[in-house]
Amino acid sequence: MGEVRIVGTAHVSERSIEAVRDAIEEFSPDVVGVELDRGRYAALKKEQAPPKVEDVLKAGNFSQLLFQWTLGYIQRKIGMDVGVEPGAEMVAAIGEVERRGLRLALIDRDIRITLARFWQGMSLWEKMKMIYALAASLSGPGEDGIDVDALTEQDVVTAALEEFRRFSPNGARALIDERDAYIARRIIDLSGRYERVLAVVGAGHVRGVERYLSSPELLPAEEDLVAPPRHYPWGKIIGGVFVVLFALLIISLAFSGVGFEVLVWAILYWVLINGVLAAAFTIAAGGHPLSAVTAFGVAWMTSLNPLMAAGWFAAAVEAKIRKPSTADFQRIMDAENFSEMRKVPIFRVVLVAALANVGSTLGTIAYFAFISPILGIDPTVIIPQGFANFVGWLGGLFSP
């Protein structure tokens, strides 16, 4: 096995750029592994074609996209404040490799797999905390007191990682632990083919990677690190439960004898509460009034179909109006503040989709929370009585 040296970096640190160059000069590696996948490598080299707008909208992973863009913005904001482009240490490593004619290896997991496993692996509570933290960072980043160079010091890194694990244990597993194992596997593979291997990785991965290198028997199976995330479709399951509850409520009201007027109001409130909240959140996202009207018009229906979402329809209308283009993706990357990001058509479309879905979901929850006092009924009486009458009616239909 070849000799391995690891350089831990902070992605927005000038000192990290110098550390990478010094390590290559001193160690004279046969191959340099960098914490990049093919997609991010192409992006750093300006070789990556922007995604197609229609592909982004068809994918439907709006919350995940917003998370990715927001994280990227925060990293760029820190980088701009300290005068270093995010990923500059990787660019420096690539430049040195090319200048010296060395071999370059990409040793990180595909970012699409990482983000999918990260987002889908988190619990609902973790996602809510993450969204709140990101929103707070956007409204008041507070980077002025950050010592960026301290982000490569192991004690500081360890403390930060421990805090992140308390904040989101499932998120830390996908973003840190699994990637530690994946990177370690790539380094072990390189050390079997080259005598001197230099690995340039974020400081947060150094301790985990070194642990796996010293005890490779602890490494999880390769397929467990790259397989699509396995999870229950909780969103669809919960949506199905709400559909059943709504059907049960309407059937019970229809057969309980409370009167036709109460039944009509129960249905009308379903349309209004779902629609108003979906439309309000669409407007809050900066959506066009026509997008809000669309969200209002479809929310009652999409809330009864777990396979559909009000945000999809609102986003389709918003896209027709805003006319996003592939140039928008670069504009998101170039935005200097969140206000500029919100003005980019594709960002606005995705934000509308995500928030319209949030509004529709909250509308469904609010309906079941408040419909009983609004209608002036006691569900513990009406539902058993109405359902019993319904069962009796069914029995009468099928009796000889």
Rank of each mutant, 00 (worst) to 15 (best):
R166F: 00
L138A: 11
G142T: 07
A159S: 13
D149V: 05
F167K: 14
V156W: 09
G142F: 06
L138D: 04
L138R: 09
F167M: 11
L161P: 01
R166H: 05
D149K: 06
V148S: 05
V157L: 03
Q154D: 14
D144H: 10
L161W: 06
A136L: 11
R165P: 00
L138K: 07
V148D: 04
R165C: 00
S139F: 14
A159F: 00
S139I: 14
V156E: 13
E163H: 07
F164N: 06
E163F: 01
V156Q: 09
T158E: 15
S137W: 06
E153C: 00
G142H: 05
A150Q: 10
E153F: 11
L138I: 15
T152F: 01
F167Y: 12
E162Y: 04
D149I: 06
A159I: 00
Q154R: 15
L138H: 04
E143Y: 13
L161H: 07
V157C: 02
D144P: 00
T152P: 00
E162K: 15
F164H: 10
F167D: 11
V157E: 01
G145W: 11
V148A: 06
G140V: 01
T158I: 09
V148M: 02
T158Y: 04
F167G: 07
R165D: 08
L161N: 12
F167R: 12
L151D: 03
A136D: 11
S139R: 14
R166K: 15
A150T: 03
G145I: 06
A160I: 03
T152D: 06
A136Y: 04
A150V: 02
A150I: 02
A150G: 04
E143G: 05
F167I: 08
P141C: 07
A136G: 05
A159M: 03
D155M: 02
D149P: 06
V156F: 13
D155G: 10
V148E: 07
A160V: 01
S139N: 07
G140Y: 04
G140H: 10
A160E: 12
E143D: 03
I146R: 08
A160F: 04
D155Y: 00
D144R: 12
L151K: 07
D155H: 05
E162V: 08
A159P: 00
F167S: 08
P141A: 14
P141T: 14
T158R: 15
E162S: 13
R165Y: 07
E162T: 10
A159D: 13
A135G: 08
A135R: 13
D144A: 13
R165V: 07
R166D: 12
V157Q: 05
Q154Y: 02
S137N: 09
A136Q: 13
I146E: 10
T152Q: 10
G145R: 12
S139Y: 10
I146P: 01
D155W: 01
V148N: 02
P141H: 12
E153Q: 14
E143A: 09
A136K: 15
T152M: 09
V148F: 03
A150E: 12
L151V: 01
R165I: 06
F164A: 15
G142W: 05
P141D: 11
E162P: 00
E143W: 12
G140A: 10
P141W: 12
L151S: 03
V148C: 03
A159R: 15
G142K: 09
E143I: 11
S137C: 08
D144I: 03
D147I: 04
R165M: 01
R166P: 01
T152E: 13
I146K: 07
L138E: 07
I146N: 04
